[in-house]
Each structure stands twice: as structure tokens, then as C-alpha cells.
């Protein structure tokens, strides 16, 4: 790890000034990916801009049928939030299943969504719940936000400030976690709202994606059986030492059924 400058702004204005003004700087959220990368000398920013002390970036609130989660809200805070549990139970249970307690005590929703790790849990929820990604510059719909392996619609220096989740009428998340890393080998999030169903899959491919066939079937009948026969083509799925592509394709159906079951139980 090389030495670097450390800035800790307390206002969004100060943050923007630092991000724009300090050469070769990187924003630091929970640091769950960035810090190991720096320690392994794979990244060597000249400065880190720590976002943890900007009050507007943290916290959970609800207005009408929208749950807003500040970007710097930690996983543990979402998992334990009464508001999140009552409005969107799947979001709280998803957060409770990320990594391990150490990760949940540091990792943040904004950091996870901005990083867009292909095995991260939150991108599936953001996509399935048709959330709005709010940045310091604009609002980006989930369908336009994720662009494959670690790629998003964020411009350089653009910071996520909050996620706005429309409250679904029913929703569930099920993941098959890697016994080693506890990341999703396959994670499926299913959400139903106003007759429309969205199914988002993480872990299985190079980035989070939707499954139109499952969505259509679930819009007709919202039961696990409705999608039991829908199998993804393994061709575009990931393959590694833990799970080959065919197995991942199979797991997508299994996890999707579990997610629907969970949605039916919690709605």
C-alpha cells in the first residue's frame, strides 16, 4: 500500500470540491472492495475522499410508496431497519445475508451498487425493484444504470447519493451463496408491482440481468410452478471452479422459485 492523502468532507459541496479539485482521488464508501485493492497494490490513488461523514448520504426514509436509502447506509442498518423491514422485507433480508458481520458493519449500499460486482446482491434488488439511482448530478433508472461487469452509467467523479425503491406489492430474494466467499453464485430477486413483475439475476453472468420469460410467466400466474420449466440458456452464463454454466442456469430457476415462494410468504 502506498501512502495517500485522506479527506473526510462533511457536506456534499465540500465533497464535490474535493472530488473535482484533488488530482487522482477516489471516493471511499465502505471500502470493502477498494481497500483490499489498494492493499494489494492494484490501485494506488493519490487521495481518498471518505464519504462517511456527510449526513445527507446516510439513513432510511419512506414517503408514500417509496423507500429511500442513503448511499452510505451500511448493510447492517438496512438489515435492522424497521422501516425497511415493513416496507420492503426482501431488502432487509438481502442486506442481512451479505458477506459476514464485518462486511455488513462497513459495507454500504451505494458502494455496492456503484461497484456493480457481478456477484453482489444489491444490484439484483435495484434492478428487480425498478429503483431509481440518485446521484449528485441526476437520477438514473435501474434499467439504464447497470452495464455489465463492474460497469455502470456513472460518469467519472459522479457519486450515488441515494437509492429510491418503489414499494412492491410482493417481492423476494433468494441466493445460492458461495461457501467460500459468501457472494452470490446465483441470486434472484423477484418483485411485483401493479400487475408487473420484474425478475433480476445476479452472480450468474457478467452482470445483473432480467429474465423476460420468467417475468411474463409470473405476470400470468405468480407462483413458483409458473417458472419451474423456464430454463436459461447456459451459453451466456459464467463458469468457474465453483459452478459451471449449466449448473448456474439450473440454479437460476431454483432460486427464482424460492424468491417467488418468499414473496408469497411475506406479502
Amino acid at each position: 500500500m502506498r501512502s495517500f492523502a485522506f479527506h473526510r468532507p462533511t457536506t456534499l459541496y465540500e465533497m464535490s470540491a474535493l472530488l473535482g479539485g484533488v488530482a487522482d482521488s477516489m471516493p471511499l464508501a465502505g471500502g470493502m472492495t477498494l481497500l483490499p485493492t489498494i492493499k494489494q497494490r492494484l490501485a494506488a490513488p493519490a487521495a481518498l475522499i471518505d464519504l462517511s461523514k456527510i449526513p445527507q448520504l446516510s439513513g432510511i426514509s419512506a414517503q408514500a410508496d417509496v423507500l429511500t436509502v442513503g448511499a452510505m447506509t451500511r448493510h447492517v442498518d438496512v438489515a435492522e431497519s424497521e422501516l425497511a423491514r415493513s416496507k420492503i422485507p426482501l431488502l432487509a433480508s438481502l442486506a442481512a445475508g451479505i458477506g459476514d458481520p464485518a462486511v455488513r458493519n462497513r459495507g454500504t449500499i451505494g458502494g455496492s451498487v456503484a461497484n456493480n460486482d457481478p456477484s453482489a446482491d444489491y444490484p439484483a434488488a435495484v434492478l428487480a425493484l425498478d429503483a431509481m439511482v440518485v446521484t449528485d448530478r441526476r437520477e438514473i433508472a435501474a434499467d439504464a444504470f447497470f452495464r455489465g461487469l463492474f460497469e455502470t452509467a456513472l460518469d467519472p467523479g459522479e457519486i450515488i447519493t441515494a437509492l429510491r425503491f418503489p414499494v412492491p406489492s410482493a417481492g423476494g430474494y433468494a441466493k445460492f451463496k458461495s461457501p467460500a466467499s459468501r457472494y452470490a453464485v446465483v441470486g434472484v430477486c423477484v418483485a411485483k408491482k401493479a400487475g408487473k413483475v420484474r425478475v433480476a439475476v445476479t452472480g450468474a453472468g457478467p452482470g445483473v440481468f432480467r429474465v423476460a420469460a420468467m417475468e411474463a410467466a409470473l405476470e400470468r400466474t405468480f407462483t413458483p410452478e409458473a417458472i419451474a420449466a423456464i430454463k436459461l440458456d447456459a451459453e451466456n452464463l459464467s463458469s468457474d471452479i465453483h459452478a459451471d454454466a449449466e449448473y448456474r442456469a439450473h440454479l437460476v430457476t431454483v432460486m427464482a422459485k424460492k424468491a417467488v415462494m418468499s414473496a408469497l410468504q411475506t406479502s
Binding site: 458461495s178 461457501p179 467460500a180 466467499s181 457472494y183 468457474d240 471452479i241 465453483h242
Partner: peptide, 12 residues
């Protein structure tokens, strides 16, 4: 390929 605890599964 299993060069870290991300990929080498220790019993827990």
C-alpha cells in the same frame, strides 16, 4: 485458481 479465501473454501 483457488489462491485466496474467496475461492478456497474453508469449513466454517
Amino acid at each position: 485458481l483457488s489462491g485466496s479465501f474467496m475461492d478456497y473454501t474453508m469449513p466454517r
